[in-house]
Design a protein around this nucleic acid. Structure first.
Lengths: 117, 117
DNA sequence: CTGTATCCACCTTGATACTG
DNA sequence: CAGTATCAAGGTGGATACAG
C-alpha cells in the first residue's frame, strides 16, 4: 500500500510538493481559527482580533494577507469614517472542506489514542 | 455553511486543537517524504538519509523520533555488526490515508489555480 | 479602525565533526 | 552504521508603539 500513488502521469515530486503547499497554506498557527470564524460570516479586523484571543495585529495582518493571496478570503474596504475592513470567505475556501474533515477525524482519533496511552 | 461543526457534544475548542495536532504531526518539512518512502517498505537510517536529498542526520533523527512517538512508525534495532536500525510504518500510519488524499487533491488543484493566475 | 514599524526571543533548520 | 554535540543562521511569532 502506498500513501502516495506515484504511478500516474503526474510525477511523485509534483505530488509531494502539492502536499507541502496545502499543509503550509492551511497549517499555520492561526489559519484554522480565522477560517473557522469567517465561516460563520463576515468579520472586521477588530472583530477577528477580539475573537481570536492572543493574536497580535501584526500576525493577524500577515495571516489575512496570506489567506487573501491564496484566494481563500476576500478583503473589502468600507469607506466609512473611520475606514473599516471586512473579511469573508470565498466560495473557493469551501473546497478545503474535505481536508478539514479528514484532519478533524484523524486529529480527534489521534488525541484519544495519545491521551489513553 | 461551516468549516467546523461546533454543534456536537465535543467542544469547538477541542476540535480546533485536534486540527492543530493533526497538522503539526503530519505537516513538518520532511514528514511527508519520510512516510511516503517508508510506505514502499522498511528502510534503514542510511537509506532514508540517501533517499531524502538534503536532510541532515540531526533533523532526520528528530523527525523519526517524532513519528515514532506518535506511533506512525516503528524503530527496530538489528543486532548485526555494526548495528543497523530499521524503520517501517505501523498499521496506524495508514489511518492518515484520508488526510493525505484530501491534501493531495486540494494541493494539486490549488497549485494549478495559483499557477494559471 | 486598520494596520505598519520596531525590536526581541525563540524555535527550527542546517553544516559539520565526532562518538559508540 | 546510527546517531549526538556543537555552533551558526534564518524565519516565525510576539509586545508594543505609532501612523494614516
Amino acid at each position: 500500500m502506498k500513501l502516495v500513488d506515484c504511478s500516474g502521469k503526474e510525477s511523485c515530486k509534483e505530488k509531494t510538493l502539492a502536499f507541502r503547499d496545502a499543509i503550509e497554506l492551511l497549517g499555520g498557527k492561526w489559519k484554522v481559527f480565522i477560517l473557522q470564524h469567517l465561516s460563520f460570516g463576515t468579520m472586521r479586523f477588530k472583530d477577528l482580533q477580539e475573537t481570536i484571543v492572543g493574536i497580535s495585529p501584526k500576525v493577524l495582518t500577515k495571516e489575512l494577507q496570506d489567506l487573501e493571496q491564496n484566494h481563500l478570503i476576500t478583503r473589502t474596504v468600507n469607506h466609512t469614517k473611520p475606514i473599516t475592513v471586512s473579511y469573508s470567505l470565498t466560495p473557493y475556501a469551501y473546497e478545503t472542506q474535505a481536508v478539514y474533515n479528514a484532519l478533524l477525524e484523524f486529529g480527534t482519533k489521534h488525541r484519544r489514542k495519545i491521551k489513553n496511552k
